[in-house]
Write a protein that binds this DNA or RNA. Structure first.
Length: 187
DNA sequence: TAAGTGCGTCGTT
DNA sequence: AACGACGCACTTA
C-alpha cells in the first residue's frame, strides 16, 4: 500500500531530505504517484505505463501526518481532475527547486482554474521579464503538476506550448477547466 | 495565411 | 559550452 523510498545520496544532498513516502492515488485517469517529505507533498507523478519498482516494500509505519496529507491530496486531485479548484491542499515541499524555479512556481500558483497565462507573462511575474525561455525550463521542472498548474501556461498567441507529461495531458486538463481548446489546439 | 529560419535571452546542467 | 515547454522579426510559398 505504501513504501518508504530510498533517496539517492545526490538527491539527499540537494534537497536535504532523509526519507520520502511514496503513495498511489488511484483516479479514473490512472494511478498517480504522490511523494511526501517531512515538509509536505514534494512530488506528484502522472500515471505511467512503466511497472512500479518491484523493490521489496519494507513494512513501515506510516506517520499520521503523512496519512492526513495523503487524504487531503487524494481528495484534491479528484477535484482538480474534474477541472475544479480543490477546497484544501496539502502543504507543498518545493525545496528541490532553485531560487528562480521557486519564484516561477510561486507565481504559477496564482493562476486559477479556468485561467491561463503566457510564458512571457509568467516571466514578468517572476521578476525576470527576459528569462522567458528559462521559465519554460522551470515549468518543465515543476515537481507537483496539476496542483502547481503548469498546464495553464501557454505560449504566445494562445498556442499550446509544451508539456513534459505529454501535450494530451495539457489539453485534457485545460479542457476539463472549460478552456476553449480550438484556439490552442496547435502547438 | 501557414510554415520555416535565425537570433536574442538566460537559468540550468 | 550546450541546451530548452519561448518570442519575435522576417522570409518563403
Amino acid at each position: 500500500m505504501f513504501r518508504l523510498v530510498q533517496v539517492s545520496a545526490k538527491a539527499m544532498k540537494r534537497i536535504d531530505r532523509t526519507q520520502v513516502w511514496e503513495l498511489p492515488i488511484p483516479t479514473r485517469d490512472g494511478k498517480f504517484i504522490a511523494r511526501y517529505s517531512d515538509k509536505g507533498l514534494c512530488e506528484l507523478n502522472f500515471p505511467s505505463d512503466e511497472p512500479p519498482p518491484r523493490k521489496k516494500a519494507r513494512a513501515e509505519h506510516l506517520p499520521e501526518q503523512i496519512r492526513r496529507w495523503h487524504v487531503v491530496a487524494t481528495e484534491a486531485l479528484e477535484t482538480a481532475l474534474k477541472g475544479e479548484a480543490p477546497k484544501e491542499l496539502p502543504p507543498f515541499d518545493l525545496s528541490s527547486g532553485t531560487e528562480f524555479q521557486r519564484r516561477v512556481w510561486t507565481a504559477m500558483q496564482k493562476v486559477g482554474a479556468g485561467h491561463t497565462c503566457s510564458y512571457s507573462e509568467l516571466a514578468r511575474a517572476s521578476g525576470k521579464a527576459d528569462a522567458v525561455r528559462a521559465v519554460g525550463g522551470a515549468c518543465g521542472a515543476n515537481p507537483i503538476p496539476v496542483f502547481v498548474p503548469c498546464h495553464r501556461i501557454l505560449a504566445a498567441n494562445r498556442r499550446l506550448g509544451g508539456f513534459s507529461a505529454g501535450l494530451e495531458w495539457k489539453r485534457k486538463l485545460l479542457a476539463r477547466e472549460g478552456m476553449d481548446l480550438p484556439l490552442v489546439l496547435k502547438a
